[in-house]
Design a protein around this nucleic acid. Structure first.
Length: 475
DNA sequence: TGAAATGTTGGGGCG
DNA sequence: ACGCCCCAACATTTC
């Protein structure tokens, strides 16, 4: 082996320099480092990166490239099945070692295992590390030695495993510069939307990349975490972290977030840490049940009588259901690539329970439109709402979008922002415009069925229909 | 990480 | 003064 042979550092969902175990390990190895990012749509198949995430990834790769350049590490872009692309590059540059942080989507696990044995077989040292999770998904076990299926015991077990001051990866020392092998131009990947460019709202709402992640974390620590316990369910308030897309792409590590929250807020951080644990729980579930994105965790639900109704699905996607809180959420999603978690629950419940449409339709839509689209979180959360998941919402828990709106958006800040055509309606009718008297509607310039839709289903009717449908799969 | 229906209680109006 | 009814407020049960 060539004494100057470089190490490969394979970036995937760890697009950062700080607390990056693979980068630290590669740096410690002492050779020049060539970084690579592979756009692998073929292996990802059905769960190839969605539209909003592709926009995010583009911006993030621009940032990562600039940061790596400062360390003397070239970032090579290649496209194709990683199973062939990565070993090919390793041979091309005579790499002596390859480092990466683990990914946990089933196709990635299978693929990376195959890559590891191919490289090892070719005499290349391979090291994979944990850069994405607080606890590896195979670690937490019940007393009986089984994986967890219920969140609270999982949380207790996990909480017990967490060190008071989580150690972070050591920053890389000076690294000998490497020669850059050829790669694709990022622009040629077409990750950014053109004709039409629908990303204007995303650009206005986000700064992807490691620096953006740090700024968002600081903002949350100063602005949100102190009142997180009381205000996190109010979508009109700026009290949640909005770190999900950064966490998905690893522009900040969950360890950094956990440690910062604990250090900054002490016991007040607890409800937020619990939310981080839901992410861990999702990965734990996906690990033990790789079909989670495709099939109901609870097999009873295989015979659920879902309706097919593409017109209703379309109205839900566009935020035209006639229920202001639902429409506000779906429009926030479409505009910014993100939706407040409380509203995610309400909109998801509406699709599954009011419209009786298969949760996989919602899962697919969120996958394509969310900048934080994450296979484990998305699948586990949709199954939770649908009632088919592990530790799921009971089938009879049907959110009333009017009551949820009145409870969590009482002053209408959220609905005003995303459904401006209702801005002049008095608070009393904001979440139920169809009950407003004609003269009030007229004064507010609202014409139901004209400027704003009438409800596409009646809540009471839909509720009874859902209870009847869900009764057919009752255990 | 609900909502609606049903049940219970207690204060006040009133015959 | 007493019992009856009404109903709001709260609690419990059911979906």
């Amino acid at each position: 082996m060539d004494h100057d042979s470089p190490s490969l550092l394979w970036f995937r969902q760890d697009l950062r320099l700080s607390d990056n175990p693979a980068l630290s390990a590669a740096a410690k190895h002492g050779r020049p480092i060539v970084a690579i990012f592979i756009l692998d749509d073929e292996n990802a198949a059905r769960w190839a990166i969605g539209g909003a995430s592709r926009w995010w990834l583009h911006c993030s790769l621009v940032r990562l490239d600039a940061s790596l350049r400062g360390l003397g590490i070239p970032l090579v872009l290649r496209r194709g099945p990683a199973l062939t692309v990565l070993p090919a590059l390793a041979a091309e540059v005579s790499a002596g070692a390859v480092f990466w942080n683990r990914c946990y989507e089933p196709f990635q696990v299978a693929r990376d295992t195959a890559i590891k044995s191919a490289l090892s077989g070719a005499g290349v040292r391979v090291e994979s590390l944990n850069g994405s999770l607080l606890v590896e998904p195979w670690v937490p076990k019940t007393q009986a030695g089984q994986p967890f299926r219920v969140f609270t015991p999982f949380w207790k077990a996990m909480r017990g495993l967490m060190a008071p001051q989580l150690p972070l990866a050591v920053p890389p020392p000076t690294i000998p510069p490497a020669k850059a092998p050829p790669g694709d131009a990022l622009e040629d990947w077409g990750l950014q939307p053109r004709k039409p460019d629908w990303a204007g709202g995303l650009r206005a709402a986000w700064s992807p990349g490691e620096a953006g992640a740090m700024a968002q974390l600081e903002h949350f620590l100063e602005q949100g975490i102190g009142r997180y316990r009381s205000d996190r369910d109010r979508p009109g308030e700026d009290s949640v972290s909005r770190l999900s897309p950064y966490l998905h792409w690893g522009e900040i590590s969950v360890r950094q977030v956990w440690r910062a929250a604990e250090t900054y807020a002490g016991p007040a951080a607890e409800p937020f840490l619990r939310q981080l644990a839901w992410r861990e729980f999702s990965y734990h579930l996906l690990w033990q049940f790789p079909d989670l994105p495709e099939r109901p965790f609870n097999a009873q639900f295989s015979r659920f009588p879902w309706r097919e109704d593409s017109a209703a699905l379309n109205l839900w996607q566009r935020g035209l259901t006639g229920y202001p809180l639902v429409d506000a959420g779906m429009r926030e999603l479409w505009t910014t690539g993100w939706m407040h978690n409380r509203v995610r629950m309400v909109t998801a419940s509406f699709l599954v329970k009011h419209l009786l449409l298969d949760w996989r339709h919602g899962e697919a839509w969120f996958w394509d439109t969310l900048v934080d689209a994450d296979l484990a979180n998305n699948a586990a959360s949709w199954q939770w709402v649908a009632g088919s998941g592990a530790d799921a919402a009971p089938y009879f828990r049907i959110f009333n979008p009017v009551l949820q709106g009145e409870k969590f958006d009482p002053d209408g800040r959220y609905v005003h922002r995303w459904v401006p055509e209702l801005a002049k309606l008095p608070d009393e009718f904001l979440h139920k415009p169809w009950l407003a008297p004609a003269n009030i509607l007229k004064t507010a310039d609202v014409e139901l069925g004209g400027t704003y839709p009438k409800p596409i289903v009646d809540h009471a009717v839909a509720r009874d229909r859902a209870l009847a449908a869900f009764a057919t799969v009752r255990t």
